[in-house]
Design a protein around this nucleic acid. Structure first.
Length: 376
DNA sequence: TATATTTGACCGTC
DNA sequence: GACGGTCAAATATA
């Protein structure tokens, strides 16, 4: 029964991710005007699916066995904040789509009363991104964020308004927006990736939505001619694995509801001596898919992206294989996170649920995934 | 007590 | 010298 319950939840997540991917593709690739009602219905469907999955994970029926394993190792109360933490990613995706729904419902009042809204013209496609109205961009960004958070089709295709700084025009975005072009005099390091993400509507709006990695803030600076300070983060696991990934986060002057996030460097902690169970055991051969690729996909969350990309992209029914009892790991999580009293099959479920829903923002959860380097 | 965040100082680049 | 990025001591938090 428990397995059936988890199957239901995974189906919900899978459906939501597929819907998000469809929506992302539609907005991004369509060369015809996008229908307002289609967008509204899609957002409602996706929000509903994410919401149901998150609520199910939050329910007591799950906390009685899954969250115990998910959170016990972190010393969290499975009946309290722990369950909420575990479903935070689903809740974040839901709130993002609810925001999109609000925007869509407000659209007619803003004068876009026709059902066929030319969100962007017949030229369509990625090349017209700069001409896409803000509403369409926000919806696309929301869908892309959900895909990123849950490991959608991966890479730049799923990432809204993603720009790879190639060095040819430092300081200038590929999307061509002139209002946010700042000092071009200082060269930005090559290989940086700039993306924009909407701020969460709920909770602490001073921090950007979780991107699946654990970051440690190491600085904050007031930037000239900017209303908001820029925050500097580095990978939490730098001290363990010398992971040099960094990111800068700054709220946009022209749209305080949006953050500009600049990623710099590749996460090398993914290739640790104790690779993630989800990457190397549940789905062999996927662990290093996006390491050192030099493209935005290398910035995807270390925990969820490779596994979920394969899972979503190739064989949705492979979900069943994730529920096969694991051997060899001895029921323990990478780096010593012990599964206390869990059955083997439940261990797999817990691992997968963790990959899907653990926000990764607490820091402690990742620390138990990655064991410290020998000798440290 | 361990870990994360804050914040003033320092340093390199322009 | 201005500015952005980083360091590291002090402080906060779990």
């Amino acid at each position: 029964q428990r397995r059936l319950l988890m199957d239901d939840i995974f189906s919900q997540i899978l459906d939501a991710c597929k819907l998000a991917k469809d929506l992302d593709d539609s907005v991004r690739l369509s060369d015809v005007p996008i229908d307002l009602h289609y967008l509204l219905n899609s957002c409602e469907e996706i929000a509903g699916a994410f919401s149901k999955a998150a609520a199910a994970l939050h329910s007591r029926s799950l906390s009685s066995y899954t969250s115990q394993m998910l959170f016990a190792a972190e010393g969290m109360d499975s009946d309290g904040a722990g369950a909420g933490e575990g479903s935070s990613r689903g809740a974040a995706a839901t709130s993002s789509f609810i925001r999109a729904i609000d925007l869509l419902r407000a659209a007619p009042a803003a004068g876009m009363e026709d059902s066929n809204i030319p969100f962007f013209g017949a030229t369509g496609g990625p090349s017209s991104l700069p001409e896409m109205p803000q509403l369409a961009l926000e919806i696309q960004a929301t869908a892309a964020m959900a895909l990123e958070a849950f490991g959608g089709d991966g890479g730049g295709q799923a990432t809204a308004r993603l720009a790879v700084e190639g060095g040819s025009s430092p300081g200038r975005r590929v999307d061509g927006s002139s209002s946010t072009v700042q000092r071009a005099s200082r060269k930005r390091k090559e290989g940086t990736v700039t993306t924009r993400v909407p701020a969460l509507r709920t909770g602490n709006m001073d921090i950007p939505p979780d991107d699946g990695y654990t970051w440690r803030k190491y600085g904050q600076k007031d930037i000239l001619n900017s209303m908001f300070p820029r925050s500097y983060y580095r990978c939490t696991h730098r001290s363990y694995y010398g992971c040099e990934a960094k990111k800068q986060v700054q709220r946009l002057d022209e749209d305080p509801d949006m953050f500009e996030v600049i990623y710099c460097g590749t996460h090398t902690c993914q290739t640790s001596p104790t690779p993630l169970l989800i990457s190397t055991q549940l789905l062999p051969g996927t662990a290093d898919d996006n390491v050192d690729s030099g493209n935005p996909s290398a910035m995807q969350p270390a925990t969820s992206q490779p596994a979920l990309r394969n899972w979503l992209g190739s064989n949705p029914r492979s979900l069943g294989s994730l529920l096969v009892p694991q051997s060899g790991a001895g029921g323990s999580r990478q780096g010593g996170r012990q599964m206390q009293g869990g059955r083997d099959s439940d261990c797999s479920v817990a691992e997968f649920a963790d990959v899907m829903f653990n926000s990764g923002s607490s820091g402690s959860s990742m620390d138990v995934i990655f064991s410290p380097r020998q000798g440290n």
